[in-house]
Design a protein around this nucleic acid. Structure first.
Length: 420
RNA sequence: GUGAGUGUAGCUCAGUUGGAUAGAGCACUGGGUUGUGGCCCCAGUGGGCGAGGGUUCGAGUCCCUUCACUCACCCCA
């Protein structure tokens, strides 16, 4: 029998680290709700077409990274590679705009992309998504970014860098694209192999190529922000203004490019230099064309996705996320063990973490286990005391112990455990 | 999809120019204290060296193939 292991890029999150995940999720819920967002849960499977149209046929995600299969009735389905398209679909399908044109939604859950795993990148990975549909006012751009930064601070992350850029709209971006292409074509002999190809497929991507010779070739290249139209320029100026009003500092990165087709105007990323090569903890932006691609209505949107495993990996180690038992009951002898079981069961009903040894091992080994589990108290429940109607309660930290009567043990224990 | 690195007990690793029953520390179990933890001491369980093939009298050590993991590229959270 060969051992069955989890498939490539799919990881288990074990009890030792789950505390961090719960902490991050709880903080996100609290912060986002405070900013007026509501949770939405969407399916993990969608019709392939939703992503193909929403994200863009020519993107890497759609071209080579989707988990797509045909179900038993012949429909092409895809495990969601991101949440935004599904959230937009849900918004349209249930006509949420008829309740209020502005919808502030967030969603937490796994995404799937068939990529080669590496540090900070897995085939199943978790994202926290927040989106605002229905407003294109720059004030919302700033508000969303403000919420994001506030969330990251609440989670305890320091030394992060907020980068912003404007990608222009469908009117002005093509102009810039041509301009850039023209500039780079003259210097194409200095570009790496990948960038030679990108010159045709996606010239903007060349801007953040890491190859040195490419960086040199890019020097002096036209900047997006110099080519965007009047409306886009105004929009971007207001975003910066509102960000400043919120007291946020940011770095303008005219070379930041987003890989999904639907992004327009504001784009942003939060970078950590403590991560590996995949250093974006979160990324997002405005997408005023997405809705038209998938449904027809002209609804603007803006949002971001936080990469949970990247975020969790930045959290300080330890920090009391592990839950330890409050009480360990060490019983000796069958009768005492039965009584111990009764007591522990009662404590569980009160929500008190209590453990006992089921195997009837020696007191020494039970004490060892209690110590290993870092139990605060041990109730020693031997046959002698049991006959006398008493038990010994030991405080594992102070090493002091006292004899308590069996009558009313539950109350005594509750008082001791909850009391301090 | 491409490239590089790694693959020996649950974990971290050591295994000399291929040589005799594969090691250490930690962890685990038991004992030293016939009913008491974390330190210490003693003992024990546990792998046949990712898998398959080859070279050889003999391979964890050499060659080939394959798989897995890691990091990086592409791209993204």
């Amino acid at each position: 029998m060969t051992e069955i292991k989890a498939i490539r890029g799919f990881n288990d999150i074990l009890p030792g680290e789950i505390g961090k995940w719960q902490f991050v999720e709880n903080t996100a819920r609290e912060v986002f709700e405070g900013f007026g967002f509501s949770e939405i849960r969407i399916p993990i499977l969608e019709r392939t077409e939703l992503f193909a149209r929403g994200i863009g046929e020519a993107t890497d995600i759609v071209e080579k990274e989707m988990y797509t299969f045909t179900d038993r009735s012949g429909n092409s389905l895809t495990l969601r590679p991101e949440a935004t398209a599904s959230m937009a679909r849900a918004y349209l399908e249930h006509q949420l705009h008829s309740f209020d044109p502005v919808a502030k939604l967030y969603c937490i859950g796994p995404m799937f992309r068939y990529e080669r795993p590496q540090k900070g990148r897995y085939r199943q990975f978790y994202q926290i998504d927040a989106e605002v549909f229905g407003v294109d006012n720059p004030m919302v751009d700033a508000e969303v970014i403000h919420m994001l930064i506030h969330f990251l601070r609440r989670v305890g992350l320091e030394r992060l860098e907020l980068q912003i850029n404007s990608l222009g709209c469908r009117e002005c971006r093509p102009r810039y694209r041509e301009e850039l292409k023209g500039f780079l074509t003259k210097r194409s002999f200095r570009l790496c192999e990948d960038c030679q190809r990108r010159l045709e497929t996606n010239p903007l991507r060349i801007l953040d190529c890491k190859v040195e010779s490419c960086q040199e070739a890019i020097a002096g290249a036209p900047k997006v922000t110099d080519y965007i139209c009047e409306q886009c320029r105004k929009h971007f100026d207001r975003v910066k203004e509102y960000l400043a009003m919120a007291g946020l500092s940011f770095i303008l990165n005219p070379r930041m490019v987003r890989g999904l087709d639907y992004y327009t105007r504001t784009a942003f990323e939060v970078i950590s230099y403590q991560l590996g090569s995949q250093n974006a903890v979160t990324g997002g932006g405005r997408y005023d064309n997405l809705f038209q691609e998938i449904g027809g209505l002209d609804i603007p949107g803006i949002g971001f996705a936080v990469g949970m495993e990247r975020l969790v990996s930045l959290l300080p180690a330890g920090k009391g996320f592990v839950q330890n038992p409050s009480l360990f009951v060490a019983a000796l002898g069958d009768e005492a063990l039965k009584e111990a079981y009764r007591i522990v069961s009662q404590l569980h009903l009160e929500g008190i973490r209590a453990e006992l040894d089921y195997e009837g091992k020696s007191l020494k080994s039970q004490m060892r286990r209690a110590d290993k589990l870092k139990a605060r108290y041990v109730l020693i429940f031997g046959e002698e005391e049991f006959k006398r109607g008493r038990a010994v309660l030991r405080n594992m930290e102070t090493k002091s112990q006292e004899e308590i009567p069996l009558q009313g043990v539950l109350n005594t224990l509750k008082k001791r455990i909850i009391g301090d």
